[in-house]
């Protein structure tokens, strides 16, 4: 059974007086544990598609089903709860909370969303810090660490609540190639160890090659789908 199912999804928005079709009649299915990339040039609709899958945006028409829940019919609060319960996010510009330490940033979803007791939080956070190689940086604030370290901390935060799906919008865009590869490797390892489904958008060819399933987008349409697992 598909983990994520999009049927005839359209997304239109107004840009000044112009109506932009950011997603056109998108139909796709993503299975559990996949490592999926949305690829395409700027304006191709990959971020829009990621936002729709991440319940950050609502489709103009069509239906989106995630883990069996029709998320397009949820209200704001229910979508926020759904995101907190099932989804993890990694953003292009690292997006750590600047006033919290690395440890506190990773702990944030466990406190604010999951409301777990301290001991359980400590165990989960330390385990993930270790996995992403950030244990010795845990008491530093985001402005005291490098871009690559920030993104590894963001990966840990995205995974700390054991989400089924992690969405990453151009996670390596602001990183040098070495840091970018490190982050992708961390994501890959987490996918293998935890069985998490990773979906990310990118136009970095090196990163694309790491993906198992690649959706090519152009002008809001999926123009190609490559399944490397099948090819292998």
């Amino acid at each position: 059974m598909a983990l994520i199912e999009l049927k005839n999804v359209n997304k239109k928005y107004h840009s000044g007086e112009v109506i932009v079709n950011a997603a056109r009649d998108i139909t796709l299915e993503i299975t559990e544990g996949s490592f999926v990339a949305f690829v395409g040039p700027s304006g191709s609709g990959k971020s829009t598609l990621l936002n729709l899958v991440g319940c950050l945006d609502m489709p103009t028409s069509g239906s989106i089903s995630i883990l069996g829940t029709k998320v397009d019919s949820l209200d704001r609060v229910a979508r926020a709860k759904f995101r907190g319960d099932h989804l993890g996010f990694i953003f292009q510009n690292f997006s750590l909370i600047p006033v919290l330490t690395v440890y506190e940033n990773i702990e944030y979803p466990l406190v604010m969303v999951k409301n777990l007791p301290k001991e359980e939080r400590q165990e989960k956070v330390r385990s993930l810090l270790e996995k992403v190689g950030m244990l010795n940086q845990m008491n530093k604030y985001p402005n005291q660490i490098s871009g690559g370290q920030k993104q590894r901390a963001a990966v840990a935060r995205a995974l700390v609540a054991n989400p089924k799906i992690v969405l990453a919008d151009e996670p390596t865009a602001n990183l040098d190639s070495e840091s970018a590869m490190q982050v992708i490797k961390v994501m890959h390892r987490m996918q293998e160890e935890l069985g998490t489904t990773f979906i990310f958008s990118t136009h970095d060819q090196k990163i694309v090659e790491e993906a198992e399933i690649i959706y090519h987008l152009k002008d809001g349409i999926i123009v190609d789908r490559i399944d490397r697992k099948l090819r292998a």
Partner: peptide, 16 residues
């Protein structure tokens, strides 16, 4: 605003 969007994306409820 960006920070608010980020914490909202993480599942922080509007009342929080």
């Amino acid at each position: 605003i960006g920070e608010i969007g980020m914490i909202a994306a993480l599942g922080t409820l509007p009342r929080q």
